[in-house]
Design a protein around this nucleic acid. Sequence first.
DNA 1: ACCCTTTTGTTCACGCATTGAACTAACATG
DNA 2: CATGTTAGTTCAATGCGTGAACAAAAGGGT
Lengths: 396, 396
Amino acid sequence: MARPERKTVRDVRKGNRGMLLRTLYFGGARSRHELTGLTGLSAATISTMTGDLLSEKILMEAGQVESDGGRPRVLLRVNPVYAYVIGVDVAETHVRVELFDLEMKEKARVDYTLRPSHHDIELVARRILAGIDVVLADGQVTSEQVLGVGIGVPGIVERGSADTLIHAKTFGWDGVPLGALMRAGTSLPVFIDNGAKTMGQAELWFGAGRGADHAVIVLIGSGVGATVVADGLAVRGTSNSAGEWGHTKIEMNGRLCRCGSRGCLEAYIGAEGLLARAGVPTQTTDWPSALGRVLDAGGDVVRETVTYLGTGLANLINMLNPERILIGGWAGLMIGERHLDEIRVVVGENSLTQPYNATSIVLGELGPDAVAMGAATLVLEEFLDTSAPLRLSAVS
Amino acid sequence: MARPERKTVRDVRKGNRGMLLRTLYFGGARSRHELTGLTGLSAATISTMTGDLLSEKILMEAGQVESDGGRPRVLLRVNPVYAYVIGVDVAETHVRVELFDLEMKEKARVDYTLRPSHHDIELVARRILAGIDVVLADGQVTSEQVLGVGIGVPGIVERGSADTLIHAKTFGWDGVPLGALMRAGTSLPVFIDNGAKTMGQAELWFGAGRGADHAVIVLIGSGVGATVVADGLAVRGTSNSAGEWGHTKIEMNGRLCRCGSRGCLEAYIGAEGLLARAGVPTQTTDWPSALGRVLDAGGDVVRETVTYLGTGLANLINMLNPERILIGGWAGLMIGERHLDEIRVVVGENSLTQPYNATSIVLGELGPDAVAMGAATLVLEEFLDTSAPLRLSAVS
DNA sequence: ACCCTTTTGTTCACGCATTGAACTAACATG
DNA sequence: CATGTTAGTTCAATGCGTGAACAAAAGGGT
């Protein structure tokens, strides 16, 4: 019963402005005339609004197109260097900070390796803050030109009213206030979310999920997670921990999972569980190449993996009726590249006809590097929604 | 990426009016002064808006309350007899048509029994149309006073752009155009949805789900279904068939389900599957009392049922992170009344700590009769959103 | 050169929305 | 009956989208 907020006339402008910006952002350069059709707004409104956006330098002209016999159309586009966004990927082995322009072209990047023992939150925060300074310097961008910083972290991100806390067992983080630590070190707006979700967001906006209103983006690495998108929006749940697909039970009294429970999907299709089932020692090996060998060898373990994965996806289809399912994550891509057709067959056998026929199952396009990009997307989303002008340079 | 629609100043009014109406509908009688606080709107706007609604007779005055020392507050409330809504429950054994006022008080009802062989769609449509006339006559309400008809049907309701089609295997319905048949027989607006979902809607609005923004309403009868609510809205999926929880696989190579697949949750916790597992012949017996005997007898079958149900709910919690889970349906209520505490324990063992602690698991309040009421709620929802005045009597 | 046609883009009066401030209404108290 | 207090209304100001009139920028024909 999420009741809507009070609205005033100014909200109308904000909403329409956001819509126009989104059309130009995702639809590419268009003339004012075309925009009337695409947005449903009148020519008058388009004129005044693009006028505003041009003088704010959020839009720019992008050449002309002749229009047989009449005045040529002036194309408008989002100015990719109006502002920049920063995305951060906090993973087990590294902290990566990337600077993007508005078109999500990478302008600079810096990596810090993390020793397995050193997941101290304050160290991580220091690395991020240092990384921000580095990419700004490398990219020759001032802090005032940056709309914000998005951070993808492992574990559950609890967005309390007061502060966002992070719970990540594997990092030894239990209610860690990363948001507060960031705000202490930078004045940039900070957005934090689970890394699997930021990757899902990236696939949804720029990868194989483009244009889908109902989708599930499934992430299979050593762990297993999912991003659920319903009506174009990510489903977050009441404490922002929706999407824990990996710990969904697929077998009663099944294999022991590292979460302590039994029969979790992750224990079968997660890279660690898969390798363990194949008898590969999971301590020292290079996981990706080990997994490659297991998959190429074939046999029962691989067949079972396909069955478990397909059944898990079938459950998602029955429950959520998505129009598209994306398989991502390094392990997911390795399995999918080799066995997508067989997976589709298993899914078909285990889901209802109606929703199965409405779904297409495809591989992710962005690869495992998209966590930082997805995190930056959180900032971009805010910008497109509010199209808030930059804090200082609004007047210039 | 559900892009927002173009908005104009009039949409602002529509939205705010809807919000005001909802606050009065769910919050009970309030004074104009209180409404300013509850809606966030200014006193001026509240004044003009309530003025409109009063003269349209959508609102009415509801007495005064003294306010120490000053002018007394005049209470306003939704006028329960401003208009009426009709709800229809199409089930295996009967078609039920009910007339409600705006407060969802039943004003009239009529039942038609359906012989198992007679699920001919045209017969059902004729029964519904006849039922509408009967309840209008019984309730002494004219057709002009009715906002619309909501219909809850079994199976999958496909809301195509052209027409809504219904697929219900057990009825032998495969793409049946109930919407078109209704429009041929009545000029009232018609809303059709799956019966499990209308019941979920009823629980969400008027039952144990009141006020929950993220909830799952689980329906266990002979079949098993679920309504997923995220951010206050039902998740429908891309072809409106989300929520098929019953055919989610909980066991690889498990029991054969009537859907043809193996290991479906429904095969374990659905009434039919449960009775079969207990060795009760499912042909002629009176299911509810048979189920009562099985449950009271206890033993392995009951313990297993609790385990399967609890695990299934745990999966929902991990995946969707709801703040509340409602167990409904006649069989669900029977199981829940006897074993809710044990179910909670199983759920706790099979779900992640964080989301488990955020969820409360409760029984439905409305009983299995709520399908028609939920269907009528579809009409009510439309009314509260648009607060469209009645088609003819708007001027009066 | 000049005018006409076509298409694109802008300006402006109008209607409709919310709002704060000034104002009126309705009570209790002494 | 005057005063204080709270509730509710009215009105000018401001903001927004829109249609209609208007301006701009081309090509084509004479």
